[in-house]
Design a protein around this nucleic acid. Sequence first.
DNA 1: AACCTGACGACGC
DNA 2: GGCGTCGCCAGGT
Length: 111
Amino acid sequence: MNLRHDIYELVQHIPLGYVATYGQIAHLLGLPHHARQVGYALYQVDLDSEIPWHRVVNAQGKISTSPQRHGTDEQQRWRLEAEGIEFDRQGKIDLRRFGWRPAWLQTSEKP
DNA sequence: AACCTGACGACGC
DNA sequence: GGCGTCGCCAGGT
């Protein structure tokens, strides 16, 4: 399958109340150095899609902003807060608390 | 084919 | 820890 499809498939596994990073998604797919491609793929997701695109943030635990998002980054924050995720004063998420830890990493299983 | 553009990240100061 | 640099690579022009 193509890259975008793989990315979408994996993002759907991020559980409610947790977040993953762009680089983490790329690594889980066995594609290091493809973090930017993850961001590019998510940029193209329809806002009303089933894909929980809002559960992906950058490695610093912050929502990545861009003029081209036309405010969807704001919507991302609302959605995450609605799921119980907390932001600190600098708009950062504590990845130790809210970072996704896929179960299959410990059980040597794959989705 | 060459060049440009990023929802990124590791690293050095 | 904040901030700039540099490396990355799929897609579009």
